[in-house]
Design a protein around this nucleic acid. Sequence first.
DNA 1: ATAAAATTGTTGCATTTGCAACAGATTTCA
DNA 2: TGAAATCTGTTGCAAATGCAACAATTTTAT
Lengths: 209, 209
Amino acid sequence: MVTNFDKKNFIKNFKANCKKIQVKNFIKGETVTTYIEKRNQICIVLSGEVDLIRYDFNGNKTIIGHFVENDIFGEVFYPANTNNELFVTAIKKSEILFFTYDTLFEKCEYECAFHKELINNLSELFIDEIIGLNLRIELLTKRSIREKLLSYFEILSKSSMNKVFTIPYTYTDLADYFSVDRSSLMREIKMLTDEGFIKKEGTKITLLY
Amino acid sequence: MVTNFDKKNFIKNFKANCKKIQVKNFIKGETVTTYIEKRNQICIVLSGEVDLIRYDFNGNKTIIGHFVENDIFGEVFYPANTNNELFVTAIKKSEILFFTYDTLFEKCEYECAFHKELINNLSELFIDEIIGLNLRIELLTKRSIREKLLSYFEILSKSSMNKVFTIPYTYTDLADYFSVDRSSLMREIKMLTDEGFIKKEGTKITLLY
DNA sequence: ATAAAATTGTTGCATTTGCAACAGATTTCA
DNA sequence: TGAAATCTGTTGCAAATGCAACAATTTTAT
């Protein structure tokens, strides 16, 4: 992960009334934004968690993105020609920073530090986002649930430098992240357990190889 | 697509000996770069086409990325902890621009225009990359090959504003892009044809609904 | 504290997909 | 231009996955 900008220090310094950037608070369940118009809006999660949700033509709901602290999201990142209704909902109390990409580089009349720092750090936020998307693609392109799980466990194990680690999702959410049926995911985890590859206590996994 | 920087004009102006950025040429089959060390390297395809290839522990080769003119790629976009051997091969004569993210923002001693313009346009290149990745994820997360195909066709149709369009890949590559078996893809296309949803002549598709 | 909601765990069965294998068509390259 | 390589099209069969359904457990909200 490329260094994240120091959010807390930023907010502390974000005193001037910067018209280019807004910070809003949301309670659980509130709609943060919709991806309907082409405003080139970009958002950053300062705290809390939000889901990007798609309702397809049948009315089926799919969570297609999940964003936590320091994640960046927004309609500017989505291809224009998909006919989906996308919207973002806070799944807990959240603080979200909004700006319009097109006007971000215009000078803020108060020359606010927050605004300047944001521009300086934007590339790193983009890079982090790209890394996250590439990781997910890496997993999505594995041909079987077993391969997805083993690759994912490998990554969690390496980044914690430990054979023991905790999956940062519920199994329901993990199935969504992998885009597979939840019961099939549970079945495969059971098989990995029965075959002695892993030990499982809740979402705490131990690699046995 | 966010506006791409005017590459041709750039190269014309790229006269000064900018040490921060390099342009190299590759013939078909040549290795462009490997993702082994952590140099924070970023590359842009000025012309030609390259593939990002993974060899897994069994020696199986998978094309995990395909980049064409104006696409951006590089080790900086890949999570550090995946134990893959990744490398990039030119699949035709290609001209590639290289730079190191960490040193990009340092001033070039010759203040070359190319260097400056690159910095100015970097955000837009990142955004284009994110859009492309989100599009692929959108398709990869569809649960069946049929859904993948119909969504993809929808997008191609909308962006060409026509019921008739040409798939910009071979079917072999499209199967890779969807991460599905090629013969299964062909079978599904045949079924869509037989059921009267589409008409197919080579990679030229007509939507019949 | 308790009711409601969400998550986990499991199974049988239907469906989809992958795999292997091959022939024919098309493209590439020497 | 002719040989080699790649791509297309197809099929039978095995394996993996999705779907549906339900009970048990855990978490959340009032």
